[in-house]
Amino acid sequence: MFITIGIICILLTSVMFVQFKTVQVIEESGISAMTESELRDEYSTIKSKTDELAKSLEEVNSSIKEYENQSSNNKGTTDLLKEDIQKAKNDIGYTDVKGPGLIITIKDGDGEYEKVEYWDLLFALNELKYAGAEAISINDSRIVNNTYIKSIEDNYLVIDGPRKISPYVIKVIGDTKYLESVINIKGGLKDEMENTGKSISYTVEDEVSIPKYKGKIEINSGE
């Protein structure tokens, strides 16, 4: 009888303290304590906000275009300037682009240590750039010169802000022959991913469309 009561006491108090600890952790971490409906509300408000912001961005862009048109009375030189601007925008990733290229899909493996990490994506980007990639996007995030890929608390990856999860779809425009070769070469992208348990597949497309960079590139400190 003492043993039974003792076991029950240990069980009850230990479970209670585990629960106390869990509740404390949840209170500290915030979002995971929200109920499903709260999260849904939050999601819908954020979504409508982003829609509004996208609309206002569109308006601003159209007014910029208007100003450009107004100022283009002086045709010859402004045309040249416009061309230059367009080219510069293309180069830094401010425009949607289309062209022949590859669509590569990299997926997490099943094992615990077979998740796609930021260094895998950085490796992939570097390989593709080496093969002369002209424009790259990962899950519709355009990769530009100041793009960062960072892992947050070892849980998920962010690319320039938004959170990305597996599968990672990398769209790349460039010479498909070169691009394919860096994937298939011994010790290349395919080997590297499959050796560490991730799965990778790609298709060659005649026309891949890559969205423009949605952020803003600002240079404040440098001249």
Binding site: I5, G6, I7, C9, I10, L11, L12, T13, S14, V15, M16, F17, V18, F20, K21
Partner: peptide
């Protein structure tokens, strides 16, 4: 046993 349980928990 309660003390043991607290430590364990």
């Amino acid at each position: 046993c309660s003390a043991l349980g607290i430590l364990l928990g």
